[in-house]
Amino acid sequence: METILAVVIGVLYATGIYMMLRRSLVKLIIGLSLLSNGANLLIFTVGRLTRARAPFVPEGADALQPPYADPLPQALILTAIVISFGVLGFVVVLFHRAYQTVGTDDLDEMKATDT
């Protein structure tokens, strides 16, 4: 399972970076979201893949019963998803505005602030 997920993560990173290297704004957004998904999946995988119960304390007990899954990577991913969701929402609006003001989605046309 780890091998499959490692390959999936690799593919997500590779396609994400490939998309980011294109000149179109839309592809840049797709690239960014692929990249953040790759990072989330990476955390999920390095947090150990196990067959275990959800980390809830059962009724009547006062401690977790092994085997239970490590809740922390999932909490990290959840936080990261929420953050990347907010950021990507902003990015979409920003790029929409950029398209309106500059009149193109070609990144090569946006050189006003260089040199």
Partner: peptide
């Protein structure tokens, strides 16, 4: 135009940081 460059590169660094933090936890 400046923001597009700023946002893109900073988001890349955030994704890298997130991956690094995750691996460190693992």
């Amino acid at each position: 135009e400046g923001a597009i460059k700023y946002v893109t590169l900073n988001l890349m660094s955030s994704a890298l940081l997130l991956a690094a933090v995750g691996i460190l936890y693992g």
